[in-house]
Amino acid sequence: MIAESMYQELILEHYKHPQGRGLREPYDAEVHHVNPTCGDEVTLRVKLGDGGKVLDVSYDGQGCSISQAAASVLYELATDSTVEESLSVVDEFTRLMQGRGQVEADEDVLGDAVAFAGVAKFPARVKCALLSWMAYKDAVLRSQA
């Protein structure tokens, strides 16, 4: 019953009570990412401030518990941090997700996102976890362009 370990309490909590959900103004860039294999989608906006501060990450989308919870956790981690800090979290999260369950997660960097470690054992679900995180990276790059 590996799947039940994938559905950590924290993931279910974020799924049932998503943080920061809904698209907000103002924003510097908006992106729309889809996962064609399952139809999950997310629209995500970022608003950056002085000194690379992330003022807001707002999003809306539809999808499974993993994709929705991942967006919620991303919101919490990125908002009020800096572009540099948040992108290093994205990189660490990506490394963890693509590690096929063989990668030890750096909890100091990942914080709550470490709860997704179990997802890495399910290749079909890795894209669900990464959907909003990749959208965030894309949006940040576009707002800096």
């Binding site: 019953m1 799947a3 399952c38 499974c64 679900r125």
Partner: peptide, 27 residues
């Protein structure tokens, strides 16, 4: 309130029930 991918994952992993989830090539 529950996405089919979550339904399929639990059915498979806990009960060995293989179903298909998604749009079944009929979007």
């Amino acid at each position: 309130g529950i996405h089919p991918h979550d339904v399929g994952q639990i059915l498979d992993d806990v009960f060995g029930v293989a179903v298909r989830v998604g749009h079944h090539c009929a979007r």
